[in-house]
Amino acid sequence: MNKARQNPLNAVAAHGALILYTLIALFPVFVILINSFKTRKAIFREPLALPDADSFSMIGYETVMKQGDFFLYFQNSLIVTVVSLFFILLFGAMAAFALSEYRFRGNTLMGLYLALGIMIPIRIGTVAILDLMVQTGLVNTLMALILVYTAQGLPLAVFILSEFMRQVSEDLKNAGRIDGLSEYTIFFRLVLPLVRPAMATVAVFNMIPIWNDLWFPLILAPAEETKTLTLGSQVFIGQFVTDWNAVLSALSLAILPVMILYVIFSRQLIRGITSGAVK
């Protein structure tokens, strides 16, 4: 930042507020992490204490590793999340490009129709979706989840991305057309890189709800080999006894992949290469 515009008091206040917020936001994660390394007794006796020689225990992680096929759940969650995000971004961006770039009959109507999904939760249609999946034989496949999540994410993706694509310079696309680039090349090579921050936003918005979702895995893919991590962790939460060590360990493990994905996307959020393209 420019030195002349920097007021030290303001900087301290801003950083103070941000640090405070970070602490508050990270506190639950921190508690989960430390407790996942403690014995059951220690968790209840002193939930906020750090694990020491006495209370340290890997029992939770051991249970998680033994119980069921945890790596498979992990893999399922990862596949569902990544593939859904890929389809949301690909189809969302394509639809947004068509809506923002081409004049055709019913353009506005189509845009409104696609945006309608933002206001209507997809869970309302659960029964119909289940019926559809049964008829197409997709129950208990990851494909079922991927399709549902893609449908769920598309409205917002189209809405946000088409807004951003309208701002991409008309001249730049036309220069591409005059230079003989195909519409696909213009889309993939010129427009997509310029809306990368918006794509990252869409990805982050969609990633966490998909990763955490319990509803659709429970209804559409409860079979052992298609269980996601969230669903798999439910076995430790019983009606009468809950294996807190295992639950906390499973949650700790579940945080990791989202964090990695988040770091990848957020770097895109910050990086902008638009400068210099047009005046």
């Binding site: 310079s169 001249d171 730049l172 036309n174 220069a175 591409g176 090579r189 010129l190 890189p193 310029l194 290469i273 638009t274 400068s275 210099g276 393209a277 047009v278 005046k279």
Partner: peptide
């Protein structure tokens, strides 16, 4: 073009 429209990448 007035806005140059160079390929940024």
């Amino acid at each position: 073009f007035q806005s140059y429209a160079l390929y940024p990448h």
